[in-house]
Design a protein around this nucleic acid. Structure first.
Lengths: 334, 334
DNA sequence: CCTCATCGTGCAAGCGCTTGCACGATGGTC
DNA sequence: GACCATCGTGCAAGCGCTTGCACGATGAGG
């Protein structure tokens, strides 16, 4: 293993000079700097992170906590975070919290000493608990806004409005929007947006997963809903399957729009119309905000990311009244 | 921050004693040990990883490299790895290699100094390059077998046989199996298994993703295939969609079986029959093997994991000849 | 009762790096 | 021409932990 001292010797300078070339090059004269760089690449020197951290410098890695890495939405975010990290020369430590507040906190504790900061996706633990655990360590929340903590969130209001407007433009009048679990910041945020709207039915809270979606379908049909905005894509996919199982067709009998735009949505049949979340930007912005903080910026930035409607084929014009009539008739049979 | 020294003082012993209580308890007398433990929990002491590593001890973390974390199959493995890590008190460092050999190697280099070992999923870089980069650092390959490297792999032969046998039992005679990219170890392994079989057509190599699956459908129909074993679930899903787009039905006109058993398979319509891979075991075994090596065991273990058929509704009995006749007729139209 | 393993614990030397401080060498100013 | 700011570099003290070695206190054997 080649150390700082080896490089220093090769370059004919003091180890501290090498160290400075690496951390604050502007302090060092250009000729020396060049010589050091040559020695570094010649010897293939790689700084030892542990030593660097121990000596009080930057660690060069960040911790990322996600509720469930198997959820494609979070997988996309993690991927973006990882890419940003690589671009910034950072290492990413990942912990899956299994959606549990205690795992979140214990994960943070475990990573605590080894990272420069945290990116926390959809945190469920209370903000004050977070502060207690991480102390002054920089931190940014993804998908939750909290005072005193940097965050990058999706425009939940736009999600609701984009989804509902799309349905309305297709002529739908009996529109439902599914509420998410109360524990989520995004749920509360959407509820606020929903409250602004006239004439939409709300359903739930309902778990944002496939099975819950299936279970939802029957109720939607009974309520003669013709267009529904699910809480996320997984749930939307479930609604579509449940609908077909009940003998109805998507989008002829029910238009469904999801939210997130996970890969599975494009692969369903019909492919899912959805409000696309910029997962990549979410991750990238989070890292950017975090790096800012790590570099000493005191400002607490709250970043709001726009969403966009992706129209595929799970939504269509509302059926003419006779069409709905037919549907109802069939519905009585099942 | 509470340090070893603080604990030592609180317990009235020397720091080295505390250190030993943590790393090799059997060296320390029981009363002292107890006292130290009390002091530790009293003060809420958390060992500093950087210092520990620097001093030459274990780091307590492992590096995991995956080709694509957004691929649900790898997400499942990562999740399992993470769980095993937590159970063993290990931290997991994750890097996404984007399926590129150079990223694999540079990822390993970046993590190099900060981990006790590596779990590498579906490595594409050559084994000797790996050895060159990681030196004597313990390492285990997932989904590739290589001499001199511990590995945990799926029984590729069983995958092929299980899939094909299932199709045969349903009466299919015109069966195709899709080959994967030549670069994959699993592809070569399956090819070997396919070679053993009589009377199956092979197709490909074909990329193991959704779009490639869609593209495949037409060819399958033209060749009058009635049952197909895809290379993985993503591809199988694509075949189903492509098939329906061509006016055929699954499983009536074409039975399709996937491989992996990703979550999306259960959510498709019809839900996908597939050869399930024990993703959780893959991850857990990998960690176990790695920990063994880290603990100094010299043996190079190669673990072969069994797979199982999960029958859902994308496969069915072969259509009666008249049925196929009909299909063909319809086929001419499209 | 003295000798010698054996066991439990203290001691101190680092691991590789960062950083505040000191110091010599510049070049400009009065 | 003597003085001072400025700049570039060397020096050394740690960061928190592990571990080989030494040492005192036990209990067993002659």
């Amino acid at each position: 293993m080649v150390t700082l001292a080896d490089v220093a010797q090769a370059a004919g300078v003091h180890p501290s000079t090498v160290s400075r070339v690496l951390s604050r090059p502007q302090l060092i004269g250009v000729p020396t700097r060049t010589a050091v760089h040559e020695a570094i690449s010649l010897l293939g020197y790689v700084p030892n992170k542990a030593a660097r951290q121990l000596a009080g410098g930057r660690v060069g890695s960040i911790g990322v906590l996600v509720p469930d890495i198997a959820n494609p939405f979070f997988a996309k975010i993690v991927r973006a975070v990882q890419q940003s990290c690589r671009a910034d020369g950072l290492t990413m430590l990942l912990a899956d919290t299994d959606q549990r507040a205690d795992e979140e906190l214990s994960g943070a504790r475990a990573l605590g000493g080894s990272v420069d900061g945290f990116v926390v996706c959809s945190p469920v633990a209370a903000t004050k608990d977070w502060r207690a655990v991480v102390g002054v360590t920089p931190i940014v929340f993804v998908n939750r806004r909290a005072t005193g903590v940097a965050s990058v969130v999706l425009d939940q209001r736009a999600i609701v409005e984009l989804g509902v407007d799309h349905l309305r433009e297709l002529g739908h009048r009996r529109i439902a929007v599914v509420r998410g679990p109360d524990a989520y910041w995004s749920s509360k945020e959407r509820d606020r947006a929903i409250a602004r709207l006239d004439g939409v039915l709300t359903i739930g809270p309902v778990r944002p997963d496939f099975d819950a979606g299936i279970a939802l379908a029957a109720g939607l049909i009974n309520a003669e809903i013709t267009g529904v905005l699910a809480f996320n894509d997984l749930q939307a996919l479930g609604i579509m399957v449940g609908c077909r199982a009940a003998g109805r067709s998507v989008p002829d009998d029910l238009s469904v729009v999801g939210s997130d735009d996970i890969a599975g949505g494009a692969m369903s049949d019909p492919p899912l119309t959805t409000v696309s979340a910029p997962a990549h930007e979410l991750g990238a912005s989070a890292v950017q905000l975090l790096v800012h903080q790590i570099n000493g910026s005191p400002e607490v930035t709250e970043s709001l990311l726009p969403v966009a409607l992706t129209v595929r084929r799970s939504t269509g014009p509302v059926a003419r009244r006779t069409g709905r009539q037919n549907s109802n008739t069939r519905g009585d049979l099942s």
